[in-house]
């Protein structure tokens, strides 16, 4: 793929890629930016010898690169803790950029939902994100996660069941509070 074409594709996917990097970085925005930047570097530096071979869509392939980079970033975090690598959080382009306007209730609901997602196992969280947030099919999600379709389906069903149970529990609690008030 030509470097200019590659750059154009990456730019078109940028917002979705950031959302995926955020999901792979446990909601840490600074880490997500670092992961996304490293992924861009990997892909652009190997533009002539890119491993993208059109067996899957560009989006699922790049999401796989982002996922692997996030795993490397988690390992680098351990080295950073041992002081062998410099701290990079200060160089983040925009670590805590907040949306311009939002209601308090919406913001609380979002944070509450993020906390619920944080309680799910990683694979379940990833597949639910890819299907509901990124609107991929289960087959595409399996490619991005580098797992078989059977595994992806299992994680999807279990994750959805757990999430549903958490939402129902929250609904019951909310209704009980409303009834008391």
């Amino acid at each position: 793929m030509h470097p200019d074409e590659l750059r154009a594709q990456l730019e078109a996917l940028h917002r979705e890629s950031f959302g995926w990097a955020l999901a792979c970085s446990d909601g840490d925005a600074a880490r997500a930016e670092s992961v996304l930047q490293r992924s861009y570097l990997k892909v652009l530096e190997s533009a002539g010898t890119s491993s993208f071979q059109a067996r899957s869509s560009f989006k699922t392939w790049f999401f796989g690169v982002v996922r692997n980079t996030a795993a490397e970033e988690r390992r680098r975090w351990i080295w950073r803790k041992l002081r062998l690598l410099p701290q990079e959080s200060a160089d983040a382009v925009a670590s805590e950029r907040k949306p311009a306007e939002q209601s308090l209730a919406e913001s609380e609901l979002r944070e509450h939902f993020r906390r619920m997602l944080g309680e799910l196992p990683r694979r379940q969280r990833e597949v639910l994100h890819l299907v509901f947030y990124q609107e991929l099919t289960l087959e595409e999600a399996a490619v991005a996660m580098a797992v078989g379709i059977g595994s992806a389906r299992t994680h999807y069903e279990r994750g959805k069941k757990k999430l549903r149970a958490m939402l129902e529990k929250e609904q019951v609690v909310a209704e009980t509070r409303r009834a008391r008030a």
């Binding site: 990456l10 979002r110 999430l163």
Partner: peptide, 27 residues
């Protein structure tokens, strides 16, 4: 319900994402 919750997350994340040019410049 799950889909709608994810879409609210998506909107909030899109608003706080850095621009593509900023991401390339920093690395």
């Amino acid at each position: 319900d799950i889909r709608s919750l994810y879409q609210t997350l998506r909107q909030a994340d899109a608003e706080r994402a850095p621009s593509f040019a900023q991401s390339l410049r920093a690395l």
